[in-house]
């Protein structure tokens, strides 16, 4: 009984160590959250979120919930954020968010729901501060004779077994759903056979009945950038790859001008010579 009283006293009184750790971790967590929102790069955002999660995990440990703290680090920081990073790396390092809004009116709804969530959290915290009598988690006695881990396990498999199973069912459903959506068979809608394709081409459903003419490879050179020539000797525009042609000509544009003497010469009165184009 005395241990219980001690625990109560500990719960109402904040020790120096706890205060210090709170004032170190709290701003860190907040900075992480803000950084996540305002960072330009998606990977930096993810890293800021990792910082917030780590700070929260350590806070749980300080609050006598070591199991919760380490599970937070293992599951959220270790597994879930790692998956996020994995996806971000697959998307590419320099891709940033597009500013085009896909969901209409999402800002309005985000504001409304965000305010609602804030109200809920404030209400819950206010109630916890005023009405709920804290027992504290320190020591094995305060938990009815068992430790922190054993208590969580017992509650999970007795009182909360149904919500627990429900959550796992939800997660499995989500995973299976993601797989079903991810691996949609593209041939279900009917991939056209060659015959159907030919008929469609001649019906005019495509730009032209034949494929595009190939480049003039082997006629004069073996480069795919070589244009094919029509019977009258003119260049068949369609045989040129837009990509290859454009890149080559753009690259050599300045050089061609320089050779032709079309570039402006160096300014005689300037100290620095004219900008050298490479």
């Amino acid at each position: 009984m005395s241990a219980l009283l001690l625990a109560q006293e500990a719960a109402t009184h904040v020790s120096t160590g706890e205060a210090i750790s709170f004032w170190v971790l709290g701003p860190l967590a907040l900075a992480g959250g803000l950084g996540m929102i305002f960072a330009r790069n998606a990977v930096h955002s993810a890293l800021f979120l990792v910082m917030t999660m780590l700070s929260l995990g350590v806070m749980y440990m300080v609050q006598q919930g070591p199991f919760l703290g380490f599970v937070q680090i293992i599951v959220y920081t270790g597994a879930i954020m790692m998956l996020f990073l994995f996806v971000l790396m697959l998307v590419g390092r320099d891709s940033s968010d597009s500013v085009v809004e896909v969901l209409r009116g999402q800002r309005l709804w985000a504001t409304v729901l965000g305010v609602g969530l804030a109200v809920l959290i404030v209400a819950a915290v206010a109630r916890a501060l005023t009405e709920v009598r804290p027992l504290g988690l320190a020591g094995t006695e305060a938990n009815g004779g068992r430790g922190n881990v054993a208590n969580i396990g017992l509650k999970l498999f007795t009182d909360y077994v149904f919500p627990f199973e429900l959550t796992s069912a939800l997660l499995i459903t989500a995973a299976v759903g993601a797989m079903v959506l991810g691996y949609v068979d593209r041939h279900v809608r009917g991939r056209k056979t060659q015959k159907e394709l030919v008929e469609a081409r001649f019906r005019g459903e495509h730009d032209r009945p034949s494929p595009l003419p190939g480049p003039g490879v082997f006629a004069t050179s073996n480069s795919v950038a070589t244009p094919a020539l029509l019977p009258d000797g003119s260049v068949a525009e369609e045989s040129l790859s837009r990509l290859i042609d454009a890149t080559a000509s753009e690259k050599l544009d300045e050089e061609r001008k320089a050779v032709a003497g079309a570039l402006p010469g160096p300014d005689a009165r300037a100290l620095a010579p004219g900008k050298e184009e490479s």
Binding site: F70, I73, I74
Partner: peptide
């Protein structure tokens, strides 16, 4: 720690 095993796992995941 009462959760010593988890510490090692958490460290390896970090």
């Amino acid at each position: 720690l009462p959760v010593g095993v988890l510490v090692v796992l958490a460290c390896s995941s970090m």
